[in-house]
Nucleic acid binder design. Structure first.
Length: 109
DNA sequence: CAAGTGACTACAG
DNA sequence: ACTGTAGCCACTT
């Protein structure tokens, strides 16, 4: 069992609606700050490991929707975010700093 | 086994 | 501010 992926999904599942976080932040919350790529990798497989996960709330450190091409539809990520009240312009989350949800700070164990 | 790839980041120029 | 390079690590070929 890959505890790492499971831990990633557990954190992603706790991202509140209308909020976003980054791969690096999740990696850091897991104590593996250097494994941000693995977080992205885990998200790529999330559809099989944990279907229904709000993967659209995870963006890169710039608030860019880098993973949108991996969704069922390239526009689904943006559509879902906007549906939650998150404004997206040119694949970039508006007000990203304000909407950013840091698992290290805001997580409730 | 070596080399390539990627939903990432940080740092240097 | 923008571009290029390098570190990172699991997985594929």
């Amino acid at each position: 069992m890959h505890n790492f992926y499971t831990a990633v999904y557990d954190i992603v599942a706790q991202i509140p609606e209308g909020r976003v976080t980054s791969y690096g932040a999740i990696a850091k919350a897991l104590g593996a700050a250097k494994s941000s790529r693995m977080v992205g990798y885990a998200m790529n497989l999330s559809h099989t490991h944990r279907p229904g996960l709000p993967a659209h709330r995870v963006v890169n450190r710039n608030g860019l929707l880098t993973g949108r091409h991996h969704f069922a539809s390239p526009t689904q990520m943006q559509e879902r975010l906007e549906s939650e009240g998150v404004n997206v312009k040119k694949d970039q989350v508006m007000n990203f700093k304000l909407l950013f949800w840091d698992p290290l700070v805001e997580i409730t164990l």
